[in-house]
Design a protein around this nucleic acid. Structure first.
Length: 224
DNA sequence: GAGTACCT
DNA sequence: AGGG
Protein backbone atom coordinates (compact mmCIF):
# COMPACT_ATOMS: atom_id res chain seq x y z
CA UNK A 1 0.00 0.00 0.00
CA UNK A 2 1.36 3.37 -0.93
CA UNK A 3 2.41 5.83 1.76
CA UNK A 4 0.58 9.08 1.08
CA UNK A 5 0.25 11.83 3.68
CA UNK A 6 -1.37 10.93 6.99
CA UNK A 7 -3.63 13.83 7.97
CA UNK A 8 -4.74 11.86 11.03
CA UNK A 9 -4.54 8.19 11.97
CA UNK A 10 -6.43 6.35 9.21
CA UNK A 11 -6.94 9.48 7.09
CA UNK A 12 -4.46 9.40 4.21
CA UNK A 13 -4.15 11.84 1.34
CA UNK A 14 -2.54 10.71 -1.93
CA UNK A 15 -2.11 13.89 -4.01
CA UNK A 16 -2.15 13.26 -7.74
CA UNK A 17 -2.57 9.53 -7.36
CA UNK A 18 -4.32 9.30 -10.74
CA UNK A 19 -2.07 10.31 -13.62
CA UNK A 20 -3.44 12.11 -16.69
CA UNK A 21 -4.20 8.88 -18.54
CA UNK A 22 -6.04 7.44 -15.53
CA UNK A 23 -8.00 10.64 -15.04
CA UNK A 24 -9.06 10.54 -18.68
CA UNK A 25 -10.03 6.88 -18.33
CA UNK A 26 -12.03 7.59 -15.19
CA UNK A 27 -13.82 10.48 -16.88
CA UNK A 28 -14.85 8.17 -19.70
CA UNK A 29 -16.06 5.63 -17.14
CA UNK A 30 -18.09 8.27 -15.36
CA UNK A 31 -19.63 9.34 -18.67
CA UNK A 32 -20.78 5.75 -19.15
CA UNK A 33 -22.25 5.64 -15.65
CA UNK A 34 -24.13 8.90 -16.23
CA UNK A 35 -25.54 7.58 -19.50
CA UNK A 36 -27.02 4.59 -17.66
CA UNK A 37 -27.80 6.32 -14.36
CA UNK A 38 -28.51 10.05 -14.79
CA UNK A 39 -27.53 12.44 -12.03
CA UNK A 40 -30.41 13.34 -9.75
CA UNK A 41 -30.96 15.75 -6.87
CA UNK A 42 -30.99 14.04 -3.48
CA UNK A 43 -33.18 15.47 -0.71
CA UNK A 44 -32.88 15.73 3.02
CA UNK A 45 -34.66 13.23 5.21
CA UNK A 46 -37.97 14.47 6.56
CA UNK A 47 -37.71 18.04 5.26
CA UNK A 48 -37.18 17.13 1.61
CA UNK A 49 -34.78 20.04 1.16
CA UNK A 50 -32.65 19.51 -1.92
CA UNK A 51 -28.91 19.03 -1.70
CA UNK A 52 -26.82 21.45 -3.74
CA UNK A 53 -24.82 18.47 -4.98
CA UNK A 54 -26.18 16.13 -7.63
CA UNK A 55 -25.57 12.41 -7.37
CA UNK A 56 -25.50 9.07 -9.06
CA UNK A 57 -23.97 5.68 -8.20
CA UNK A 58 -22.28 2.65 -9.65
CA UNK A 59 -22.04 -0.87 -8.26
CA UNK A 60 -24.43 -3.39 -6.75
CA UNK A 61 -25.64 -0.77 -4.27
CA UNK A 62 -26.00 2.99 -4.32
CA UNK A 63 -26.36 5.55 -1.54
CA UNK A 64 -29.55 7.59 -1.84
CA UNK A 65 -31.30 10.20 0.27
CA UNK A 66 -34.87 11.43 0.11
CA UNK A 67 -37.61 12.41 2.52
CA UNK A 68 -37.72 8.80 3.73
CA UNK A 69 -34.09 8.89 4.84
CA UNK A 70 -30.60 7.76 3.93
CA UNK A 71 -30.10 4.24 2.62
CA UNK A 72 -28.32 1.95 0.21
CA UNK A 73 -30.44 0.43 -2.52
CA UNK A 74 -29.76 -1.53 -5.71
CA UNK A 75 -31.75 0.70 -8.07
CA UNK A 76 -31.71 4.29 -9.29
CA UNK A 77 -34.40 6.20 -7.35
CA UNK A 78 -35.88 7.82 -10.45
CA UNK A 79 -35.42 5.33 -13.27
CA UNK A 80 -35.70 2.17 -11.17
CA UNK A 81 -32.85 0.65 -13.16
CA UNK A 82 -30.02 -1.21 -11.46
CA UNK A 83 -26.86 0.86 -10.98
CA UNK A 84 -24.22 0.33 -13.67
CA UNK A 85 -21.05 -1.62 -12.87
CA UNK A 86 -18.24 -0.21 -10.77
CA UNK A 87 -15.73 1.68 -12.93
CA UNK A 88 -12.50 -0.30 -13.43
CA UNK A 89 -10.38 2.66 -12.34
CA UNK A 90 -12.24 2.75 -9.03
CA UNK A 91 -11.61 -0.97 -8.50
CA UNK A 92 -7.95 -0.50 -9.30
CA UNK A 93 -7.62 2.37 -6.83
CA UNK A 94 -9.43 0.32 -4.17
CA UNK A 95 -7.08 -2.62 -4.66
CA UNK A 96 -4.07 -0.34 -4.36
CA UNK A 97 -5.16 1.94 -1.53
CA UNK A 98 -7.96 0.48 0.57
CA UNK A 99 -6.06 -2.34 2.26
CA UNK A 100 -9.25 -4.37 2.32
CA UNK A 101 -9.60 -7.70 0.58
CA UNK A 102 -13.28 -7.60 -0.42
CA UNK A 103 -14.26 -5.28 -3.27
CA UNK A 104 -16.40 -2.17 -2.76
CA UNK A 105 -20.15 -2.56 -3.24
CA UNK A 106 -21.07 1.05 -3.89
CA UNK A 107 -19.50 4.00 -5.63
CA UNK A 108 -21.29 7.25 -4.92
CA UNK A 109 -20.58 9.92 -7.52
CA UNK A 110 -21.10 13.49 -6.34
CA UNK A 111 -21.31 16.26 -8.94
CA UNK A 112 -20.49 19.72 -7.62
CA UNK A 113 -21.38 22.85 -9.53
CA UNK A 114 -19.42 26.01 -8.75
CA UNK A 115 -21.80 26.87 -5.89
CA UNK A 116 -22.29 23.39 -4.49
CA UNK A 117 -21.31 22.48 -0.95
CA UNK A 118 -21.50 19.52 1.35
CA UNK A 119 -22.04 20.18 5.04
CA UNK A 120 -20.09 18.35 7.71
CA UNK A 121 -21.33 14.78 8.05
CA UNK A 122 -20.28 11.23 8.84
CA UNK A 123 -20.42 8.27 6.45
CA UNK A 124 -22.22 5.92 8.78
CA UNK A 125 -24.84 4.12 6.73
CA UNK A 126 -22.55 1.18 5.99
CA UNK A 127 -22.89 -1.96 8.09
CA UNK A 128 -19.22 -2.77 7.62
CA UNK A 129 -17.32 0.03 9.28
CA UNK A 130 -14.04 -1.87 9.22
CA UNK A 131 -13.59 -1.08 5.51
CA UNK A 132 -12.36 2.40 4.59
CA UNK A 133 -14.09 4.86 2.29
CA UNK A 134 -11.97 5.72 -0.74
CA UNK A 135 -12.45 9.11 -2.39
CA UNK A 136 -11.24 10.12 -5.87
CA UNK A 137 -11.44 13.69 -7.17
CA UNK A 138 -11.79 14.99 -10.73
CA UNK A 139 -12.38 18.42 -12.20
CA UNK A 140 -12.20 21.65 -10.26
CA UNK A 141 -10.28 21.73 -6.97
CA UNK A 142 -12.20 22.08 -3.72
CA UNK A 143 -11.70 22.78 -0.04
CA UNK A 144 -12.26 19.59 1.93
CA UNK A 145 -12.96 20.04 5.63
CA UNK A 146 -12.39 17.31 8.19
CA UNK A 147 -12.78 17.21 11.93
CA UNK A 148 -13.05 14.52 14.55
CA UNK A 149 -15.55 11.95 15.71
CA UNK A 150 -17.80 14.59 17.24
CA UNK A 151 -19.37 17.38 15.26
CA UNK A 152 -18.01 19.93 17.70
CA UNK A 153 -14.40 18.75 17.40
CA UNK A 154 -12.03 21.26 15.80
CA UNK A 155 -11.68 20.94 12.03
CA UNK A 156 -9.15 21.76 9.35
CA UNK A 157 -9.38 22.08 5.60
CA UNK A 158 -7.16 20.96 2.74
CA UNK A 159 -7.36 21.47 -0.98
CA UNK A 160 -8.30 18.43 -3.04
CA UNK A 161 -7.34 18.48 -6.71
CA UNK A 162 -8.10 16.40 -9.77
CA UNK A 163 -6.43 13.03 -9.42
CA UNK A 164 -6.17 13.09 -5.64
CA UNK A 165 -7.14 10.02 -3.64
CA UNK A 166 -8.18 10.13 0.00
CA UNK A 167 -8.57 7.10 2.24
CA UNK A 168 -10.88 7.51 5.22
CA UNK A 169 -10.45 4.50 7.45
CA UNK A 170 -9.26 3.05 10.72
CA UNK A 171 -9.73 5.41 13.65
CA UNK A 172 -10.83 8.12 11.19
CA UNK A 173 -13.55 6.04 9.53
CA UNK A 174 -16.33 8.03 11.22
CA UNK A 175 -14.83 11.50 11.20
CA UNK A 176 -17.02 14.45 10.27
CA UNK A 177 -16.10 15.83 6.86
CA UNK A 178 -17.52 17.93 4.05
CA UNK A 179 -16.79 20.30 1.18
CA UNK A 180 -16.63 24.01 2.05
CA UNK A 181 -16.49 25.18 -1.52
CA UNK A 182 -15.42 24.39 -5.03
CA UNK A 183 -12.56 26.55 -6.23
CA UNK A 184 -12.74 28.50 -9.45
CA UNK A 185 -11.06 27.36 -12.62
CA UNK A 186 -7.45 26.36 -12.25
CA UNK A 187 -7.85 22.75 -13.09
CA UNK A 188 -10.31 22.06 -15.83
CA UNK A 189 -11.52 18.58 -16.54
CA UNK A 190 -8.96 16.85 -18.67
CA UNK A 191 -9.83 16.77 -22.33
CA UNK A 192 -10.68 13.13 -22.71
CA UNK A 193 -12.84 11.09 -24.96
CA UNK A 194 -15.69 10.79 -24.60
CA UNK A 195 -16.21 14.22 -23.07
CA UNK A 196 -18.69 14.79 -20.26
CA UNK A 197 -21.35 16.95 -21.87
CA UNK A 198 -23.18 17.32 -18.56
CA UNK A 199 -20.12 18.64 -16.79
CA UNK A 200 -19.12 22.13 -17.86
CA UNK A 201 -15.80 23.57 -16.79
CA UNK A 202 -15.81 24.66 -13.18
CA UNK A 203 -17.49 21.52 -11.92
CA UNK A 204 -15.96 19.07 -9.52
CA UNK A 205 -16.65 15.41 -9.46
CA UNK A 206 -16.00 13.09 -6.54
CA UNK A 207 -16.28 9.32 -6.41
CA UNK A 208 -16.42 7.49 -3.10
CA UNK A 209 -16.11 3.73 -3.02
CA UNK A 210 -17.63 1.97 -0.03
CA UNK A 211 -18.02 -1.51 1.35
CA UNK A 212 -21.56 -1.74 2.70
CA UNK A 213 -21.90 -5.25 4.13
CA UNK A 214 -19.34 -7.42 5.87
CA UNK A 215 -17.83 -9.94 3.47
CA UNK A 216 -19.21 -13.48 3.78
CA UNK A 217 -17.01 -15.64 5.96
CA UNK A 218 -14.12 -17.14 4.08
CA UNK A 219 -12.88 -20.73 4.48
CA UNK A 220 -12.45 -21.66 8.11
CA UNK A 221 -8.85 -22.30 9.09
CA UNK A 222 -8.02 -25.98 9.41
CA UNK A 223 -7.64 -27.23 12.95
CA UNK A 224 -4.35 -28.86 13.88
C1' DG B 1 -31.10 5.71 17.32
C1' DA B 2 -31.50 11.21 17.43
C1' DG B 3 -31.67 15.19 14.82
C1' DT B 4 -27.25 17.52 11.51
C1' DA B 5 -24.95 15.11 3.58
C1' DC B 6 -29.56 20.56 6.29
C1' DC B 7 -30.19 25.31 8.20
C1' DT B 8 -29.51 29.89 11.00
C1' DA C 1 -21.23 27.67 17.03
C1' DG C 2 -25.09 25.01 17.38
C1' DG C 3 -30.20 23.69 16.61
C1' DG C 4 -34.49 19.82 18.79
Amino acid sequence: MEPGIALAPGLVHHPGWLDAASRAALQAEVAAVLAAAPAYTPRMPRTGKPFSVRMTNAGPLGWVSDAAGYRYQPQHPETGAPWPPLPPTVLRAWAALAGYAAPPEACLINLYGPEARMGLHQDRDERDLTAPVLSLSLGAPALFRYGGLKRTDPSRSIRLRAGDALVIGGPSRLIFHGIDRVLAAGDLLDPGEPALPELPAGWRLNLTARRVSPPVAGPVAAKP
